[in-house]
Design a protein around this nucleic acid. Structure first.
Lengths: 337, 337
DNA sequence: GCGTAGTCTGAAATCGTTTTCTTGCAGGTA
DNA sequence: TACCTGCAAGAAAACGATTTCAGACTACGC
């Protein structure tokens, strides 16, 4: 039976060969005669040998470990992305370190340093709003940025087109004959949020319309904040028949606030969200929203990272994915013209 | 500026000292004279030295790395637990490997082996239903099991009392004067689910009541499955004024199914869920449910694991946490006696 | 019988640290 | 002056693998 610390040399001794041979059996079995190979295998089994990834990594500088930096794994959007990331990593024989930053640049910095100490071969990075991401680009491990754009042109990025997403949502509303929209979005310092607003504006402009600036709200991405902001929107007294909440969490808050004021969704106000987190379909009313390919975002990012690690990086640094409108029941034509 | 592979010896050379001294500066600074200490620090800064955790781990067998095995990080319950785990790990200077098993024992096995190869110092384990968890107990790294009980008495466990949870939910319903309950739970092979049912039965028995066996459903934990099962419950024609869905996801499905049949919640049927995943409060109606201290579950588990790693394990192997009923608006007294 | 090519295998250096064991040296005492 | 103490710093041996290089052996052809 296995008892602690069996090394390659123990195996070697038992099999009556040199450590070098054992190593070869592990890595280039075709180089060693079949008879010896069997002996070695038997010895490994008998001793319960487990290769030491640390030693191997030290020697070969191939650690089989990657880093994953994410604002908050408990957020349903990120959770899904992470799942995609981990899936392909493990399928390809890599392990990943999970790091939650809570959008805190200091934590990001510390984590990056720590990951580098552990000699990760690459890093997947979902940057926080005010990230000092240059840190990562200075080191010489490959980095792939996902979801959150970072203005650093030596990084590879896997992004979803938020401008398009904003357009899709808005065009949907327009096609239902809505003419008076309100916009509720997350912090505009995060480019994604700004892009969604821009997409919204573009679509409106194309229809010769414009957003009433008083009906544009910017808040933290939390249900309560969405609720609060929606109340304020209503309090302006300005009329709107539809609300584009550029995040499902905000949309939930918005729906609650509207209901609390006795307004029906979509009867009085249509609401469209953004992200299509998994339970958006299970809200009441089921939420019309712009779906991002969350898991695929993660998968693609990891594929790209592995390509980079293996030196097969495609020259094109940007993978742009497309959002898709999912029409459910929180949107309908406005009640009266 | 930093350029690849600076090691302790490069620093030593630049600082005009021996590698040993540099190492001491890193680990036991008090042992080296202040003047040298400064020189070394300066040299490290100049070279952009980053310690190699692999080498250190190899030498000291203290890797600062832990493993976290979980069925699915994208599940809102686990995501929250994981957050707790990672938080205290990182606060204590440890990194964690994230592993998703999809409840697949083969994957569990592979992951455990892989983690051991990487010389993790401990493992947090949320076992899958039919796990062959003995694997982990055979190795000599500490293991802490969370949430899912495992019948292996050399493992430490951090669990939530599901029997009590079942009682709480049921007693709440009873206190509202419900007398006819239906039960909708996850696979009974998972002890947690069985316990919740048991708690339910116990509470009923105490009130001289019993569950109608025809109104006990067991399904996979998915919204759709809950929906389907609820329809079947209704199709039995048996009367029930309240439904205990021993999982929030099932509860969501149940509510949908009830509504689809024209039944009001809680007007016609009260529904109580289990877990209190974060959006349970944002459903309509806001879901009455049994809350588990999810994040704390993870935190306690990690604290225990670290204690184990540091050899300060308390003798008591079991940490039992308490669920709490959260009354919201999906439950009410039955309409007519 | 000898040179040569071709297979396998082993010896030993190496990866970057930590740590034990020594040694050098300063200072205090007899 | 000689001796002991004690401290600070260095030399060198690990940790457990991989890999280069060279050696042993076989087989073959002339």
């Amino acid at each position: 039976m296995a008892r602690e610390k069996v090394g390659i040399r123990d195996v070697a001794k038992l099999a009556g060969v040199s450590p070098a041979t054992v190593s070869r059996v592990l890595n280039r079995p075709e180089l060693v005669a079949e008879r010896l190979r069997d002996q070695v295998h038997r010895a490994m089994a008998r001793l319960g040998y487990a290769p030491n990834a640390l030693a191997r990594g030290l020697r070969t500088r191939h650690t089989g470990v990657l880093g994953l930096i994410v604002p908050d794994i408990a957020h349903p959007f990120f959770a899904e992305v992470v799942r995609g990331v981990e899936d392909v990593a493990s399928r390809e024989g890599y392990r990943v370190f999970l790091c939650n930053t809570d959008e805190n640049p200091d934590k990001e910095e510390k984590y990056v340093a720590e990951l580098l100490n552990h000699r990760v071969e690459g890093i997947i990075f979902i940057s926080s709003s005010n990230s000092r991401a240059q840190l990562t680009s200075s080191s010489d491990v490959p980095v792939v940025v996902v979801d959150r754009r970072v203005s650093l042109d030596d990084l590879h990025e896997v992004l979803c087109d938020d401008v398009l997403g904003g357009r899709l949502a808005t065009e949907h509303l327009l096609s239902l004959e809505h003419r008076h929209l309100a916009f509720l979005g997350g912090p505009q310092v995060i480019p994604n949020n700004a892009d969604r607003l821009r997409g919204c504006r573009e679509a409106l402009a194309q229809a010769q319309l414009a957003l009433d600036q008083a009906l544009v709200a910017e808040v933290l991405v939390r249900v309560e904040a969405g609720e609060r902001a929606t109340e304020q929107l209503l309090d302006t007294g300005r009329y709107f028949s539809a609300l584009f909440a550029a995040n499902d969490l905000l949309a939930i808050g918005a729906v609650r606030a509207l209901r609390a004021r006795g307004l029906e969704v979509p009867g009085d106000v249509s609401v469209v969200g953004y992200d299509d987190v998994w339970f958006a379909a299970h809200l009441s009313p089921p939420l019309t929203t712009v779906a991002q390919p969350k898991r695929e975002l993660g998968e693609r990012a990891m594929q790209r990272l592995l390509a980079l690690v293996r030196g097969q990086a495609p020259p094109e640094r940007l993978v742009r994915m497309l959002p898709a409108l999912v029409v459910r029941q929180s949107t309908a034509p406005p009640r009266h013209k």
